[in-house]
Structure formats: structure tokens, C-alpha cells
Design a protein around this nucleic acid. Structure first.
Lengths: 131, 131
DNA sequence: TATTGTTATACTCTATAACTATA
DNA sequence: TATAGTTATAGAGTATAACAATA
């Protein structure tokens, strides 16, 4: 059963991150921003598969920490463009370095074949998550 | 990035299930119960990677729907043994039949190789989720 | 009128702390 | 005293509905 397994692994990861400074949702949004470059709040919500009001909250907390900034859209004053700041990029890098201290240690319980499988599956998961 | 991908796929699945009668967490607990047979509330919490109070709530809602029942532990009166009822088993079967109407349709966007990879993924995720 | 984003509000999921009953 | 489970309470995370500003 794929879905329960995903759920339980997500819980394990969340528990393990309980003492971290940034939540999984905030980190995921930062990662999407880095990948996409500056995009509108609505586009970011869509990337993250959440509704706009949910993204408003995530953006507010990231902005408060100085990890992203709001910029004006060049022609459409309704839109708010969200951009990663230098601090955001720095935090993303440091999270990346520490992220898999845990995951890599956990990887040691897997066989080499299982590890390869997992690496190849990330893009497949993203494809499944698409609308 | 594995963790954000897991998070986004979980969100997609949750959105898709928004109109279902049973939540993902309840379904996952039922599945664990079927796999393990009757076990104590604490053991079930541990299987599901949640704290005991969280499991208390899940069990209460499942019991109210008649999907599980509480049984006395043969020797230890503190423990509560949770067992799947016939209704619970029936619901689990019907969820299994419908679950992949969605997932299989989603599978059509994948290549044959990607589909094969995905089938092997579940046990690897479970291994990663272990303590 | 339609779209983008925010505010207001509520519900679900989860946790920790305190409590009860039993070992 | 220690353990299993529940109750009380609180904090994320998410959604829908209503609103404001702009197109």
C-alpha cells in the first residue's frame, strides 16, 4: 500500500525534524523557489499543491525570517513576486548539508540497489504529484 | 530532494481524497491492524509512528464507525486490544479496489520502467520509516 | 466582471502534560 | 513506582468563504 507507507514515512521525518528551526512545508517552498526562480504567490501555491491562503501563511513566516522577499510584478500590480534572499539560499544550503545526516544514516539500512531505486524515484514521485 | 517530493505527493493524495468517508490516517491504521492482527493501542500507535494520544482519537473514530472493536487483554487489564471488525475488513477491501482507480489512471503518465520502479518502492519506504 | 492575493474562520492532525487505572 | 491509555489543551497545517485591489 503506497499511500499509508508515504504517510508513515512523512510522520517519521516530521518527528525527526521536530526540533528544527524551519518546518518541512517552509523548506519545501524554499526549494521550489530556488528551482523556479522568483514566481508569483499563486504559482508557488500551485507548485506546492496547496491553496493560496495556505501559501500566504507560509510566505509570511518565511518573509518574517528574511528568507524570502516580496517584489512587485513589472506590469500587474495584483501579483506579488516571491524571491529567495541570500539568507534563504544560505539556509537552504545548510539544510541540504545537514538534511541527510539523518537520511544517509538511515540509508545505511538499505541495500545498494534500494538506494539507487530511491534516487531514481524522486522524479517519478514528482510526476505522480502533478495534476 | 526526497522529503519535499514526499510532502507534495502526500498533499496531492490528500486533496484527491478530500471527499472520501475515511481519512488517510484512519485508513493507514486499519491497514496496519489487518497486517498485524489484534494488537494493543500502544503498539498500533508505534506502528503508525504517532504518539498514544493521537492514536486514541483515531481508534475512537474507527470504533464509532464500527470498523474496529476494543477487546480486553487476557492478563493485563491496563491494555486495550484493538481488532478489525468485519465491517472494517469490508471497508478496507472496497478502499483497495477504488484506491487505484486514481493511482492507476495516474500511472498512465509514467513509463513502463517507472511503473516497475514504483512497485518496488513501498518496502523501501517502510524500511526508511522504521525507528 | 474576472483574477490575485489576503483576511477570517474552522477543522484535522499532531504533540506534550496531567490524570486514572492497573501492574 | 512504573506502565497503558485517556483527557485536556495547544500549535501546525490545511481548507473554504468573503473581501480588497487591480485588470
Amino acid at each position: 500500500m503506497l499511500r499509508p507507507s508515504l504517510l508513515r514515512l512523512t510522520r517519521t521525518i516530521r518527528n525527526q525534524r521536530a526540533d528544527m528551526s524551519i518546518t518541512l512545508g517552509q523548506l519545501s517552498a524554499l526549494g521550489s523557489l530556488e528551482k523556479s526562480g522568483p514566481i508569483s504567490a499563486g504559482e508557488l501555491a500551485s507548485c506546492e499543491r496547496v491553496q493560496p491562503p495556505s501559501m500566504t501563511k507560509v510566505i509570511a513566516s518565511l518573509e518574517q525570517r528574511g528568507l524570502v522577499r516580496r517584489e512587485a510584478h513589472p506590469t500587474d500590480k495584483r501579483q506579488v513576486i516571491i524571491a529567495l534572499t541570500d539568507s534563504g539560499r544560505t539556509l537552504l544550503d545548510s539544510e541540504r548539508r545537514s538534511r541527510d545526516a539523518w537520511l544517509l544514516q538511515r540509508f545505511s539500512s538499505l541495500t545498494a540497489a534500494e538506494r539507487m531505486l530511491l534516487l531514481e524515484l524522486v522524479p517519478v514521485l514528482d510526476k505522480l504529484a502533478e495534476l
